Simulated scan of single mutants.
Amino acid sequence: MQRNLNACHRIVVKIGTSSLIHANGKVKLQTIDRLAYVLAALTNQGQEVMLVTSGAIGVGLARLHLTARPQAIAEQQALAAIGQSELMRLYTQRFADYEAQAAQLLLTHDVFEYPASRQHVLDTIDALLAAKAIPVINENDSVATDELDHRTTFGDNDQLSALVATQIGADLLIVLSDIDGLYSADPRTDPTARKIEALTHLSDTVLAGASGAGSRFGTGGMVTKLKAASTMMRAGRQMVLCSGADPRVILKVLAGEPVGTWFKPTAKEVIQ
């Protein structure tokens, strides 16, 4: 199936914690640098790009030289507050190296629950894109918690990225992960597993076959990525899931090369 993605103008890129943090807990500085280079290059050639980033707690762990994620919610939120400022410093520094302007947006689910606040956020994103700035979006982990009486959390940044992408009318969501696509089985345990290059429909079988969580630094897994794909496809939008080991893969995706798994909806998949 031929991928025609070079015409995509408004693009959301989501990168997971496992793509930003080494197994030893250190930050992958080269990954952040390459990501900044690609997004700056796309902005310079006239495309509108947004980044949904995980990693605040992972960077907080690295900053405080901790090896285990604490159990207490308040301690996790404190780590997120420390890590978010450091993560944003790294993004701002690397984007500046490529003459690009980063802009931080921290969101909770409440923002999209209420029409007025949702419109304010969408207007802000539009204004940033018009100014050639790159919105860097993350969940506000320091205040969002399932224990509050009202809904604040998105659950994970895979779902946040799909929600943002559909709300702002993005043509494409690119999810950079620690796996290079969707497989017929777990490639870590099944040598016969094959990568699925394209899907036009998410069947119950595919959804049931996805399992497993992310690394000790993150919260996502294949289930959350398929939920994001489902959100995009139901909105008539496309998504590509691919490896985040080298963010320059984004350029290959937009060139239509068969990297990762391409989720493209059929007419009957779209909810009007």
Results as ranks from 00 to 15, higher is better:
N4C: 08
G25H: 00
M50H: 03
K26P: 00
N140Q: 08
K195C: 12
D110G: 10
G169S: 14
S177T: 15
A72S: 09
L173V: 03
L148F: 08
Q77C: 13
I174D: 03
I271V: 10
L29S: 12
Q30Y: 07
L90M: 15
A103S: 09
K227A: 11
L254I: 02
R216S: 01
E48M: 15
T189D: 05
E75I: 07
S177Y: 06
K28A: 09
L35A: 03
Y91V: 07
D149P: 04
R63L: 08
E48F: 10
R194Y: 02
A144V: 11
L122R: 12
D123I: 15
L35E: 00
S85Q: 09
L172Q: 01
T219R: 08
Q119K: 10
H120L: 12
V136W: 01
Q2K: 11
T124H: 13
G60P: 00
L39I: 06
G214Q: 03
P70Q: 08
I32G: 01
V143D: 14
P247H: 07
S142I: 05
S161T: 10
L251H: 14
W262N: 05
M232W: 07
T17E: 00
I11F: 11
I134Y: 12
A245R: 11
K268Q: 13
S19W: 02
G212S: 04
A170V: 02
L5I: 06
L207S: 06
V136Q: 01
D204H: 15
L148V: 04
I137D: 00
A229W: 02
K14P: 02
Q45K: 13
R94Y: 09
D33L: 09
R237E: 04
D178M: 03
V206Y: 09
M239Q: 05
M233S: 10
Q101N: 06
E48V: 10
D186H: 14
A228Q: 14
L241C: 08
A267M: 00
R94A: 11
A144N: 13
G155C: 07
L106F: 03
N6F: 12
I250S: 04
